[in-house]
Nucleic acid binder design. Sequence first.
DNA 1: CGACTTCTTCCACTCCCGGGACAAAGAGTC
DNA 2: GACTCTTTGTCCCGGGAGTGGAAGAAGTCG
Lengths: 396, 396
Amino acid sequence: MRRMTARPANAHQGRLLRLLRDGGPNSRAQLGDLVDLSRSKLAVEVDRLLETGLVVADGLAASRGGRRSHNLRLAPALRFLGVDIGATSIDVAVTNAELEVLGHLNQPMDVSEGPVAVFERVLAMAEKLKASGVAEGFDGAGIGVPGPVRFPEGVPVAPPIMPGWDGFPVREALSQDLGCPVMVDNDVNLMAMGEQHAGVARSVGDYLCVKIGTGIGCGIVIGGQVYRGTTGSAGDIGHIQVQPDGRACACGNLGCLEAHFSGAALARDAEDAARSGRSAQLAARLEAAGELTAADVSAAAAAGDTVALELIREGGQRLGQVIAGLVSFFNPGLVVIGGGVTGLGHTLLASVRTQVYRQSLPLATRNLPIVLGELGPTAGVIGAARLISDHVFSPA
Amino acid sequence: MRRMTARPANAHQGRLLRLLRDGGPNSRAQLGDLVDLSRSKLAVEVDRLLETGLVVADGLAASRGGRRSHNLRLAPALRFLGVDIGATSIDVAVTNAELEVLGHLNQPMDVSEGPVAVFERVLAMAEKLKASGVAEGFDGAGIGVPGPVRFPEGVPVAPPIMPGWDGFPVREALSQDLGCPVMVDNDVNLMAMGEQHAGVARSVGDYLCVKIGTGIGCGIVIGGQVYRGTTGSAGDIGHIQVQPDGRACACGNLGCLEAHFSGAALARDAEDAARSGRSAQLAARLEAAGELTAADVSAAAAAGDTVALELIREGGQRLGQVIAGLVSFFNPGLVVIGGGVTGLGHTLLASVRTQVYRQSLPLATRNLPIVLGELGPTAGVIGAARLISDHVFSPA
DNA sequence: CGACTTCTTCCACTCCCGGGACAAAGAGTC
DNA sequence: GACTCTTTGTCCCGGGAGTGGAAGAAGTCG
């Protein structure tokens, strides 16, 4: 069932919609303070938005000393679908027009099973959310995939960890199935947008968002906009060399960051440590589970296991080395570290900070916060919703 | 003598001025094809520009099959001053409104002599150019300095190689002395703008411009605009670590790129090679001149000296290592290498290319040209003129 | 209850802009 | 050289967008 969502007729209306999205319900007068339009003009545009149904009246606003104003808010029935496809799991969430998460599902699934199987699952999860009553239909969907994307077309290109996805028309296909507008982007970029919208990066124009999961990627935000590079592969820092003649990487080179530090590398190192008997804790966990993950390392470290701590510390140093270079080059106003292994938390952060503050130039690091993402697994889905809402809230 | 240059009254006029600057003289009709304005509107704006004197009529245009059109061109008396202050020399040039260089002077001078002495010299050079008849006054001046700049104010901040320049109000002071608008930027950024305006980077939106001089810097161009970072120090890649526990750098760290490869490092390596007797050629040059520079290495390499070639090859490898990382991160559409040691030319280029194509991901390098800058020492001054012309040709 | 403030609506006026009509100037053809 | 066709420049009209003032509605505060 196709749902015809109205679109703003001009840039002013788009601006107003985004203000209502980011700032919540607001009165006409307050909007007037923000947008620099004459009262009459503002009234006209608001009336048109009310006509389209994108905006509705919502009671009286608090008085500012005189006549009380009527509040405006985005249509409460608007729903966006945020989908974050990771290497080994899928997150699907439903948000309202203000991008508040109303329902969120997570299921393990290997992305290598291919686009058809994955999207079958995604659609099933979306149906489940609908059935739970949080949505009747969707006005747009944002999709994140763990690899480079040709953004305008919404098609993955040459994704290393996603065999079978190269060239699959994700945007086209899902737009058909869901009956609503769809945008596709790299999962890291979406995390960056999520942290910017609702997380630690609010009010920062230029920043970097490093996501450590199965691999490592970096979202680049410039002037509030995600920068994607010439072919859509910007931020692909997992294969920067951190050690000449270092470990062999799946990409064919030696010493890549990902080979030395990432969810996958950490798990392998931990298993090594367990088998060689260097860490009793890790050995016990290996015994119990049959395999180790980054989460096990995190737990062991929290329990005081020195080998686990050392692994994290060393990884943070590698990561810090790369980030230091990027900071010198890009001079961001903030660095956010997030992703699956954020559980490593402050041990990792301390190690990264030490390395960056030591290696980068003082001018670039003087006021540079390096922090953990605060949204965890919802960063991706919120970013996805944000992506598509930017699209829906822009004139066609 | 203050020269009051008119400014465009609106964005349309600015657009037209920049079109005339970049495309040369043009007829109304051709401009109409480019700007998507109605003929009436275009006529009005052109008339106003003619009134201000920024644009003048210039004979008849070639016929396109019907009535011939009158050509328009930017006022032939407009003059921009481009100043490129390097670590050890100063370039000053005068351009017309189309940014063609009408006169160019170069003098050796050490930037460490301080801003007052340097600008005295700059003003003298500007006077000399005036005296030679290429200009009567200046409608704007762009200044490049070898260090980070707080761009909006036009003030150098914490420049490592420019003691005494920190906080010196360059823009303010020169604007007073020259009696025209002045903009200040990092020399590397100006080189990037120069190569974009008149060099190899025409028609490329996102690219990197690596300048190798006494130090090493990198201009970052995104969507045709220079990116300067949060504090104006973006592109400062000279102190990215290329070797853990490598050579000591003036900045206090170990293994910085600049310590291993730059004009200064190359000269030092060459002297070592000469003294230790490994290279007869270099020894002879050292004997003759008393000291060696990057140019000597370049000349020796051209003459077939294997030690010099090896130095260049090794340096290119270091540089390529860093560029490979930046390419993965930034995914540019082009990489330009320029600066004083471009004389090292194709030996260096080959070495860099090898390293980048081997280390970066195929998706990022698939269509990535890595080339030498084609403007040489004029890139900086043209970029400076471009900077200020963008300012002058924008509505106030 | 009255003075003052804030918010909303209405309206007249201005300005911008697009497009059509027309004239001017050239090219090409016979 | 006359004629047609095309391109270019100019003029004018009408529609639409936007501004700011004024008046009215709905509050607060003393």
